Amino acid sequence: MSADLLNVDAGPVELTRQLCDIPSVSGDERRIADAVERLLRDRAPHLRIIRDGDTIVARTELGRDRRVAIAGHLDTVPVSANAPVPGGANLPVRDGRDAETGEALLWGRGTVDMKAGVAVQLALAVELADPAVDLSWVWYDHEEVASELSGLGRAMRHHPALFEADFAILGEPSNGTIEGGCNGTLRARVVLRGRRAHSARAWMGRNAIHRAGELLERLARHEPERIVVDGLEYREGLNAVSIEGGVAGNVIPDHCAFEVNYRFAPSRSVEQAEAVVRAFFADADEVRIVDRAPGARPGLDAPLARGFVDAVGREPAAKLGWTDVARFSALGVPAVNFGPGDPLLAHADDERVPVAQIVDSHAALKAWLTR
C-alpha cells in the first residue's frame, strides 16, 4: 500500500482536501484506493471489506431487515494546466470564497466530481458502527471513461450478491438535493450516401453532404420533449455531436456521416429510444446504434425514500444526465443521486464546492441513517 494517510477525525471538509490532494485520474486510482482501504481497515472494524481491483466494498452485517447501498467513484478527469484556481495550481486543493456571497469554497479538480461526496461517505462509514439499516459502502474506479471499464460494473459482475439492497444512493454532485433516477443515453451513426462527380460537373453526382444538411436542419428545428416520470420532469435531448464527409476539394462527396446523441426519459426503454431515433432519420441510408444505456426511474417510490427526502429537507428533482444509478436500477434496486457540489461545475477548470454543502450533506445523511 501507499503511504497516504487519511485523517477522518478532521471531518468531511478536511477529508475532501486530503482526497483531492491524491491525484486519481481514471486508470490511476490505485493510490487513492489504497488510502481508502487503509483508513477502513484501521478505523472501521465493524465493516467487512472486499476489494476488486481498485473498487472497495465495505459492509455492515448487523442482521437489519433493510440494506442501503451508498456508492461513489474515486477517479477524476485529467487536471487542466490552465485551471484558474487560487494559488495558480489545480493540485493540491485550495480554499477560496465566492466573490459575491463570501461563501467558503474548496477549489480544485475532484472537489465537485466527486471527492466531496466520497469524503462524506467515508466519514460516515467510520462513524456509523450501529446504523438503523445495514449498509454497503462502495468506492469504485473508472467511472469517467468508457462504460465497459467501470469498476462498479466489474464488481457487480464478479460479486453480484454484494449489491443486493433495498435502496441505493450515488454521491454524484446534486447541490445537496436529491436527484431521482437518470436519463438514458443512446448514440447513433447516421449515414447518407451519394454519387461522386467532378465538382466542375456537379450535376453528374449526388452530394451526400447536402443530403446530410437537410437532416441536420430538421434536427436543429426539433423540440425535445419534457416528460414527467413519477412526479419528476425529465428533459430529453437529440443532438448531433460529430460529423465527417468529403473526398477532395474538387470532388462531389458520395458519403457523409454524423453521430447523434439521444438523452431520453427513463420512462422509455432502450428499444423504444432506438425506435425514436430510427423513425426520426427514416430517410437516411443507414442508422447504426453505436452505444446505448438505459435510464433509471426516480426511485422515490421505495419505502426508504420518503424518510431520506424528509432528512434532506428539499424537494427532489430529476437527474438530467446518465449516472450509475442506472446500474443499480438494472439490478432492481431503486436509486437516487445525492451529494455536495454543483453538477454544472463537474470537470470545469474552476471546479469548486461550497463548504456548507459538504457539512449539510454529511448531517442529512447521518440523520437519516441513524433515525
Rank of each mutant, 00 (worst) to 15 (best):
A33I: 02
D34G: 10
D34K: 04
A35Q: 10
A35S: 11
V36K: 06
E37L: 03
E37A: 06
E37M: 00
R38P: 00
L40R: 04
L40C: 02
L40Y: 04
R43E: 14
A44T: 08
A44H: 06
P45D: 10
P45V: 05
H46A: 03
L47A: 05
L47R: 05
I49A: 07
I49T: 07
I49Q: 08
I50T: 15
I50G: 00
I50Q: 13
G53W: 04
G53Y: 05
G53L: 06
D54H: 14
T55P: 03
I56Q: 02
V57F: 08
V57W: 04
A58E: 12
R59Q: 15
E61G: 06
E61N: 14
E61F: 05
L62K: 11
L62T: 06
G63R: 13
G63S: 08
D65W: 03
D65K: 12
R66A: 13
R66F: 04
R67C: 13
A69G: 10
A69I: 10
A69F: 07
A69R: 00
I70M: 08
I70T: 09
A71V: 06
G72D: 12
G72T: 07
G72N: 12
G72Q: 09
H73K: 00
H73F: 05
H73D: 11
H73T: 03
H73E: 12
H73R: 11
L74V: 08
L74T: 07
L74P: 06
D75A: 01
D75H: 09
T76P: 03
T76V: 13
V77K: 09
V77H: 01
V77I: 13
P78L: 12
P78F: 14
V79F: 14
V79S: 08
V79H: 10
A81D: 15
A81I: 07
N82T: 12
N82E: 15
N82C: 04
N82F: 11
N82W: 07
A83G: 10
P84A: 09
V85R: 14
P86D: 14
P86K: 05
G87P: 11
G87F: 02
G87M: 08
G87N: 06
G88M: 11
A89N: 10
A89Q: 14
N90T: 12
L91G: 01
L91I: 15
L91A: 01
L91W: 02
P92T: 08
P92W: 13
P92Y: 12
R94L: 07
D95C: 02
D95F: 02
G96P: 01
G96M: 02
G96D: 02
G96W: 01
D98G: 12
D98R: 07
E100D: 15
E100C: 04
E100T: 10
G102W: 11
G102C: 06
G102I: 07
E103K: 05
A104I: 00
